Simulated assay, not measured.
Amino acid sequence: MSGDLILHHYGTSPFSEKVRVAFGIKGLPWQSVKIPPMMPKPDLTVLTGAYRKTPVMQVGADIYCDTQIILREIEHRHPSPTFYPGSAKGLAEGVAFWADHQLFSASVAVAFGLMGEQMPDAFLEDRAKFSGRSIDRSKMKMQAAMMSGPLRAHLGWIEEALHDGRKFLFGDAPSLADLAVYHCVWFVRDRAKATDLADYTALNVWADRMKGFGHGSASELDSKAAVEIAKTATPAPVPAGVAANAMGLSAGMPVSVTPDDTGRDATVGELVGLTAQSITIAREMPETGRVHVHFPRAGFILVPHKG
Rank of each mutant, 00 (worst) to 15 (best):
E75I: 07
T82L: 03
I229S: 00
E270V: 10
A111C: 06
A276H: 11
H305M: 01
T275P: 08
F168H: 11
E117C: 00
R166S: 06
R133D: 03
Q58H: 02
D4E: 15
G27I: 05
M247T: 10
N245L: 03
F295M: 10
R152P: 04
G214E: 12
P85R: 08
S223I: 01
S105I: 02
G214L: 10
E284Q: 14
G273P: 06
S250L: 14
P239H: 06
D121P: 00
A173M: 11
M39R: 11
A240S: 15
G252D: 13
G216H: 05
T12L: 14
G11W: 11
R209N: 08
D260T: 14
T232Q: 13
V21W: 07
A198I: 01
Q277D: 15
K231C: 02
P237E: 13
V238Q: 09
W186H: 15
W186C: 03
S134V: 13
A225V: 14
L221E: 10
V56C: 04
P36R: 08
I74F: 09
W30R: 02
A225S: 10
K139S: 11
I281K: 05
G11I: 07
G214C: 09
M210E: 05
I135P: 06
A251L: 07
A246K: 12
H294I: 07
F123H: 12
C184T: 12
A266H: 04
M147N: 08
V46R: 07
A194L: 06
H305Y: 15
W30K: 02
K306Q: 14
I74K: 10
Y200N: 03
R52F: 00
M115R: 14
F83W: 02
S256E: 15
F104Y: 15
G113Y: 01
A225E: 14
A192V: 10
K167F: 00
L179H: 07
F295S: 08
G3A: 08
F170W: 09
G263T: 07
V56Q: 07
H305T: 01
A128K: 09
A122K: 12
V255E: 09
Q58D: 05
K26H: 08
L71D: 03
M57N: 02
G299R: 05
K53W: 00
A177Y: 04
P55L: 11
T67I: 05
G60L: 05
T201V: 14
R290N: 01
G269A: 04
L44Y: 08
I35L: 12
G165K: 01
R152Q: 15
I74T: 12
L271S: 09
A207V: 10
F83Q: 02
A202V: 02
L151Y: 05
V33W: 02
S16N: 09
E17A: 11
V227M: 07
E125I: 00
A180C: 01
D66L: 02
R297M: 08
I281W: 04
A236Q: 14
H8W: 02
E159A: 12
T45M: 13
I301W: 00
D222S: 12
K306W: 03
D164Q: 01
V181T: 10
M253C: 05
S80D: 15
A128P: 03
V255Y: 03
Y51A: 08
W30C: 01
A266F: 03
V185I: 14
T262I: 15
